Amino acid sequence: MDCVYILHSLHLDRFYVGYSSDLYSRLEYHKKSASDKFTAKANDWNIFLIIA
């Protein structure tokens, strides 16, 4: 299912907006250090909102 998602990090107190067809795999990617520079700054990203 394609969706837009908003993640939140308590550590950074920041939000991140993304798009994916496989949200839960993408969330795991964001939590790993291999992700892009912004989301690599924290590993506590949680789903704040999903828009399908």
Rank of each mutant, 00 (worst) to 15 (best):
V4I: 13
A34E: 13
N46E: 15
F15Q: 00
I51V: 15
S20D: 01
I47W: 00
I50C: 14
Y16L: 07
I47N: 00
Y16P: 03
A52Q: 14
Y19L: 08
S9Q: 10
M1S: 09
F48P: 01
H11S: 14
K32N: 15
S9E: 07
A34Y: 09
D13I: 12
Y5S: 10
F38R: 00
L10N: 13
E28M: 06
S21N: 11
S35W: 02
R14S: 02
I6A: 10
S9M: 07
R26C: 05
M1P: 10
T39F: 01
C3T: 13
A52F: 13
E28C: 03
G18R: 01
H11Q: 14
T39A: 03
R26I: 02
L23R: 00
D2L: 11
N46W: 12
C3Q: 13
D36Q: 03
W45E: 04
W45K: 05
I47Q: 06
I6R: 15
A52T: 11
Y19P: 02
A52G: 15
A40F: 06
L49Y: 14
A42M: 04
S25Q: 09
L27E: 10
Y19D: 02
A42Q: 07
H30E: 05
G18H: 02
R14L: 04
A42C: 02
D36R: 00
K32S: 12
Y24K: 07
L12D: 05
S33V: 08
H30F: 06
S25T: 09
Y24F: 11
S20W: 01
L7F: 03
A34K: 14
H30T: 06
S9H: 09
S9K: 08
M1H: 12
N46R: 14
D36M: 07
H11P: 06
D22N: 11
R14G: 02
F48N: 05
H8N: 14
I47K: 02
S20P: 01
S20K: 06
H30K: 04
L7H: 04
F48K: 10
A40W: 06
N46L: 14
A42K: 02
L27R: 05
C3M: 10
D44N: 06
H11C: 08
S9V: 08
F15W: 00
V17H: 03
Y19S: 06
S21L: 09
Y29A: 05
D44A: 01
R14M: 02
R14D: 03
R26M: 06
G18Y: 04
A52W: 13
I47T: 05
T39P: 00
R26Y: 01
L23D: 02
D36S: 08
D13M: 10
L49H: 14
Y24R: 08
R26A: 04
S9A: 11
L49R: 15
E28D: 07
I47C: 01
V17R: 04
K31A: 07
S9R: 06
V17S: 00
Y19H: 11
S20M: 06
E28N: 09
I50R: 11
L49F: 08
V17W: 04
I6Y: 09
Y5A: 11
Y19T: 05
N46I: 15
D13Y: 09
K31T: 05
A34Q: 10
H11V: 11
A34T: 15
